[in-house]
Design a protein around this nucleic acid. Structure first.
Length: 509
DNA sequence: AGCGGAATCG
DNA sequence: CGATTCCGCT
C-alpha cells in the first residue's frame, strides 16, 4: 500500500535514507520504517534545497523556521503518502513533540520551533550507539571514538534527498587519540586548554553517553526512549549545512569567518541511552568505546548549558555525564570563548541573493549541489546584549551567592528568556562526580522530568506527583509560571553545591 | 497562529 | 506508538 506512494522521495533501495534503519524506530516497531516527523524535519533542514521552505534560524541553537508551512506539509504528506496533509495537521504532530521534549515552540515567532537539545536521537550518528562490543547495527559505522573527529560524510553534497547511505560515515577515527580507551570512567577530562583559536571549529561532535546505567550499578532497565544527541556546532559557514548535525563539514572551515556557531543544529545529550539498537546489550559499558576529548566535551557541555539556560529547558534534561561535571555556568568564559558567545551573528537580511532560488522540483533533487556555500555572507555581529545567557547566568550566579536570592541581573531578562528554570537540581550528576551522598538517582528521574530531587519545598514536585503521568510529561519549562517562580527563588545549582571543582571546569583557567 | 483533547488509523 | 484527522478554544 504505501507503495503506491510515489517514491520519489524515498530512495528505497535499502532505505537509503539518511538514517540507518535502526534509527527509525527504536523500539517500537522495529520493522516499520516509518520515518518520524522530526527526522523528516531534520532532513529538510539539512538540505539546502529546502532552505526556502524551512531553515535553521541563525542565532539560536536548534531553532528553525518553517518558512512555507504549506510546502513543508506537502512534502511531509508526500513522504507519508498522506496527500491530505496540511500544516494544521503537521503542526499537531509537531505539538506532540512538545511533551516528548523533542521540540518546543519558540514563542512569539511564527512557525518557529526549536529542537530540544537533549533528547533527540540523532540517527545520523550511529556512533552513538556504540556498544562496546562493537557490534553495530547494520549500517552503523564503526564508532569513532575520538570525538573529535567524527568524520561525517563528505557532506551531502549530492543527493540530498535521497540517498546517502548510511554507511558512509567514516569512522576512521577510531582511535582515540590517545585518550584512554581503557576506561571511561576516569575520563574526566580535564581540559586545560581552551584552544579555540580559530581553527578549532566549533563543530565538534561529541558524543555522549552517559548512561547512568553504567555506573549505576547496573540498572539496566533503561527504558526510556531514545535520547541522544550529539552536539555539533558548526561554523558559520552558513548554509552549507552548517548546522545540521548531519553534515558537518569535515573541513574545519576555513577560518574566515568567525567561529561562532550559527546554528547548531542540535546537540544531543543523552540522558540515558536507552536506545540501543539491541536491547540486550548495554551501551557502553565497557567504556572503551568512547573517549571524549575534553575540549570538546567542554564545549559541548558548555553549549548545552547555554542552551538549557536559554531555552529554559528543563535542567533535568541536562546531560549527565558520568564522570563529568559540567561547569556550571561558566558560560562566559574566557575571552575567547566569551567572545564567541557574546556575539550574535546574524545573516544579512535575508536578502536572498545568495540563496538559491530554485530547488527544482521538490525533492527529486538535483544532485548537483555545489556544496559549498558560496558565501560567506557578511555577517553582522552584534553584541548580544539582550539575552545573553551567559552573562545572565553569571550574574545570577553571583547574585545567588551573595544573597541567595536569585535576583535577576540587571540585564533583566525578558520574560521569556530570562526565565530560568527552577532548581535544576543538585543531583544532577549523580554518579561519579559528586561525592554527594545522594544516591537517589537511581531511579528514574530520567523521565520524570524535572523535579530534581526531592526537596521539601518543591511545590512542583508535589504536583507532579499528583499529576497523572500523562500530565507529568507535559510540564513545560517554557513558561511555566511555577517554574518561573521557582527560578526566582531557586537557585541554580548546577554545580553549585557540589564539589565545584569539577573537573571539567578545567576550563577555568 | 497556536494549543491540545479525542478518536482513529496503521 | 506515532501520526492523522477533526475540532473547539484562545
Amino acid at each position: 500500500m504505501k507503495a503506491g506512494c510515489s517514491i520519489v522521495e524515498k530512495p528505497e533501495g535499502g532505505g537509503g535514507y539518511q538514517f540507518p534503519d535502526w534509527a527509525y524506530k527504536t523500539e517500537s516497531s522495529p520493522g516499520s520504517r516509518q520515518i518520524q516527523l522530526w527526522h523528516f524535519i531534520l532532513e529538510l533542514l539539512q538540505k539546502e534545497e529546502f532552505r526556502h521552505v524551512i531553515a535553521w534560524q541563525q542565532g539560536e541553537y536548534g531553532e528553525f523556521v518553517i518558512k512555507d508551512p504549506d510546502e513543508v506539509a506537502r512534502l511531509w504528506g508526500r513522504r507519508k503518502c498522506k496527500p491530505q496533509m496540511n500544516y494544521d495537521k503537521l503542526s499537531r504532530a509537531l505539538r506532540y513533540y512538545y511533551n516528548k521534549r523533542i521540540l518546543h515552540k519558540t514563542k512569539g515567532k511564527r512557525f518557529t520551533y526549536k529542537f530540544n537539545f537533549n533528547k533527540l536521537v540523532m540517527p545520523n550518528y550511529p556512533f552513538i550507539n556504540i556498544r562496546s562490543s562493537g557490534v553495530v547495527p547494520q549500517s552503523a559505522p564503526p564508532v569513532p571514538t575520538a570525538s573529535s573527529r567524527f568524520h561525517f560524510p563528505p557532506l551531502d553534497t549530492h543527493s540530498p534527498t535521497n540517498d546517502v547511505q548510511p554507511g558512509r560515515f567514516s569512522a576512521s577515527s577510531l582511535t582515540a587519540s590517545g585518550q584512554e580507551s581503557g576506561n571511561g570512567t576516569d575520563r574526566k577530562a580535564e581540559l586545560p586548554e581552551l584552544e579555540d583559536g580559530s581553527t578549532t571549529d566549533w563543530r565538534r561532535g561529541v558524543d555522549l553517553l552517559s548512561s547512568r546505567s553504567a555506573v549505576g550499578g547496573g540498572i539496566g532497565h533503561q527504558k526510556r526512549k531514545p535520547d541522544i544527541m550529539l552536539p555539533l556546532f558548526t561554523r558559520p559557514g552558513m548554509y552549507p549545512d552548517p548546522h545540521s548535525p548531519f553534515a558537518v563539514s569535515p573541513l574545519p572551515g576555513r577560518g574566515g569567518v568567525l567561529n561562532v556557531p550559527l546554528s547548531p543544529a542540535l546537540s544531543l545529550t543523552p540522558t540515558i541511552f536507552s536506545y540501543s539498537p539491541s536491547p540486550g546489550l548495554s551501551p557502553f559499558t565497557s567504556s572503551s568505546c568512547f573517549s571524549f576529548n575534553p575540549e570538546e566535551m567542554k564545549h559541548y557541555l558548555h553549549s548545552q548549558a547555554c542552551s538549557v539556560f536559554n531555552y529554559h529547558l528543563s535542567p533535568r534534561t541536562f546531560p549527565r555525564y558520568p564522570g563529568l561535571m559540567v561547569p556550571p555556568l561558566q558560560c562566559q568564559m574566557h575571552p575567547e570563548e566569551s567572545a564567541q558567545f557574546s556575539i550574535k551573528l546574524q545573516p544579512p537580511p535575508a536578502g536572498r541573493k545568495n540563496r538559491e532560488r530554485v530547488e527544482s522540483s521538490e525533492e527529486s533533487a538535483p544532485v548537483t549541489a555545489p556544496t559549498m556555500a558560496p558565501v560567506p555572507p557578511r555577517i553582522k555581529v552584534e553584541p548580544a546584549s539582550d539575552k545573553d545567557p551567559e552573562s545572565l547566568r553569571q550574574l545570577v550566579r553571583e547574585e545567588e551567592r551573595s544573597h541567595g536570592e536569585g535576583a535577576v541581573p540587571s540585564r533583566t531578562i525578558d520574560e521569556e528568556k530570562g526565565t530560568v528554570f527552577a532548581r535544576p537540581a543538585a543531583p544532577v550528576w549523580p554518579s561519579l562526580s559528586m561525592s554527594t551522598p545522594s544516591e537517589e538517582p537511581l531511579e528514574v528521574t530520567e523521565d520524570s522530568e524535572d523535579r530534581p530531587g526531592r526537596e521539601p519545598s518543591a511545590p512542583e514536585k508535589k504536583e507532579d506527583a499528583l499529576m497523572p503521568p500523562k500530565l507529568r510529561l507535559k510540564r513545560r519549562w517554557n513558561d511555566d509560571p511555577e517554574a518561573r517562580e521557582l527560578s526566582k527563588n531557586g537557585k541554580f545549582l548546577w554545580s553549585g553545591s557540589g564539589p565545584q571543582g569539577l573537573a571539567t571546569a578545567a576550563a577555568d583557567a
